[in-house]
Design a protein around this nucleic acid. Structure first.
Lengths: 343, 343
DNA sequence: TTGTATGCGTTATCAA
DNA sequence: TTGATAACGCATACAA
């Protein structure tokens, strides 16, 4: 494996000239540059990572803490991991992957040993054990998600509250006055991340504020549980005309089936919006209006912020990414409410 | 950040004694060892990764090439990534994650720069562009999956052919004579990995060998496509009494629904086996007999083989992990075939 | 059992 | 514009 000395020898210059030619931190004569470039090509030279880490202050590696909990939705999780990796490469950074076993110990290990320059935390839960740790870490960190106590942290996340309000605005504009939120299974709200809460709370608060009747239903995980939840949601007594789904793919898919089997058409009889969704809703029947959860949006910002933090100053703050609404035709006007029954 | 000199000073010994005390490569007096341990504790010393990489010949990092293709099933993919990471930690190795953009360039980059000691390739497709590369890489590599041409490579994978034969043996033992395989969507067979082929081919070959009538059906991806595939599979003319599903979760789940809606009970009217499945089939109704695709099985072996390769010799070979059958009660005896109609 | 000294490959300072 | 050289932190061969 060729090293910088080999390149210097072949190019007929000193190693410092080679180093500067490659880093561009000092001007090098056109002639020398050409010979160096040729030598690099010929030898297939790539700077030794360890040497670079030791001499420079940078390892050009980011730790990515991505524990997979039992209630984690794998496809979304994977999308975020990939988005971080892709964003990092744009800054010539690589990703060192830390999983559950290493959620805290691993973070301490790779930062104390200076293996990584900085840390990105994925999918932080309400009381995440990692949060206490990163606060007094020797390297910068950015959190994707918002923990209960975000003081001293740089956080990036989709604005779930704004997304919830956006669904209500759209439904309200279309004339709906009684709507429902099909949320995650109860367990997700109990020990999971906090975005389900942020969405649900904003949904219920804003609906009340807008004088819209809103109902919240948590489905179970089995097929029959979902059927039950949908039945409950569409109880004729409440005359719900619009539904927002904030749950994972299998539940949404199942719910749509149950709705279809009940004889309701979308959007004819019922308007449906899929909210903060990390999968493709266009293959559903019908395709659903959606506020997509774009991993790249949050992760690009997270990596950009880490780079700022590495370059000097980036103040602790919470940065919320604005939601986008995509129409696919599953939102319509509410059906004329049935004539009130005489008692 | 404390370094080895600090530890040496506090412990009142030389840095080499510290180094040897920590590595255990030379005996150190009990007295010195105690003082060194105390100093390490007091200073929170952890060896600097770069220094270690440069001086030793090891970086203690493995590259994990895990591109996510359009037809990749994210949960399974994630399970393999995590399994590799977990296995690697047992050898005090970390994982550097390489994604699609970096499938080949990234491999070249991290190996040429000596950032990683070795490489693990996940989900290799039939004609994987990465295969040509790893053959003349300067570091050892292990492939999870089996490419078309495996010469010169160390490969680890579930024995999909044995799994296919195992399903047939179980069905045959129970008395089934006409069975069907519900495979992946056609696109998966065309541009994907080769395990679907290995399973299908072994299934059809072995069924023929065992004089069992076997039918192969590829479903489309939409809900109605799956219904169509199941209908085709259970065409009364073929009197299929046993079904093996080798496809992803959403299709299996949907197929079970269609079967239930058709009025067939499992295993009363139809026996069903889920084959090489990376998700949990116990929450299905009914729970399915399954040959699980245990990511840890393959990944543990892959990492073990990489360590062997790093320690000197590991001959190129293909290592197939034996399948395991788990009964959950979805396999029964075939129903008495209907009285043949008179023409 | 312990200490000294060299080298790993790079970056960056200093001198020319 | 360039070159010599001192770090960076550790492992280890060599000496004691």
């Amino acid at each position: 494996m060729a090293n910088i000395h080999d390149v210097a020898r072949v190019a007929g210059v000193s190693i410092s000239t080679v180093s500067y030619a490659l880093s561009g931190k000092r001007s090098v004569s056109e002639d020398a540059r050409r010979r160096i470039t040729a030598a690099v090509q010929e030898l297939g030279y790539l700077p030794n990572a360890a040497g670079r880490m030791l001499a420079g202050a940078r390892t050009r590696i980011l730790a990515l803490s991505a524990p997979l909990r039992s209630d984690t939705y794998a496809p979304a999780h994977m999308a975020f991991v990939l988005a971080v990796a892709t964003a990092a490469r744009r800054y010539d950074y690589d990703i060192l992957l830390l999983t559950e076993d290493e959620a805290t110990n691993g973070l301490r290990r790779v930062t104390s040993s200076r293996l990584v320059d900085a840390v990105i935390l994925l999918d932080v839960s309400i009381d995440d054990e990692r949060i206490g740790l990163v606060r007094d870490l020797s390297v910068p960190s950015v959190v994707v998600g918002v923990p209960k106590d975000a003081t001293g942290l740089i956080c990036v996340d989709l604005d779930f509250a704004a997304a919830a309000r956006l669904t209500i605005d759209r439904l309200a504009e279309a004339g709906h006055r009684s709507i429902a939120l099909l949320g995650h299974p109860e367990a997700v709200y109990q020990r999971g991340s906090n975005f389900p809460h942020r969405f649900r709370n904003a949904f219920l608060d804003y609906a009340a504020e807008q004088k819209i009747s809103a109902k919240f239903v948590m489905p179970g995980t089995s097929d029959t549980d979902v059927r039950q939840a949908v039945d409950q949601m569409l109880d004729p007594g409440d005359s719900v005309t619009g539904v927002v789904m904030h749950c994972e793919e299998s539940i949404q898919s199942r719910a749509l089936q149950v709705i279809a089997e009940s004889g309701r058409s979308v959007p004819g009889d019922l308007s449906v919006i899929s909210a903060c969704t990390s999968f493709d809703t266009s293959h559903f029947h019908p395709p659903l209006d959606v506020i997509p959860l774009v991993a790249a949006d949050s992760c690009d910002r997270a990596v950009a912020l880490i780079m700022q933090a590495l370059d000097g100053a980036a103040e602790p703050h919470v940065e919320l990414v604005a939601p986008r609404y995509e129409s696919r035709g599953s939102l319509g006007k509410p059906v004329q409410p049935a004539v009130p029954e005489l008692t």
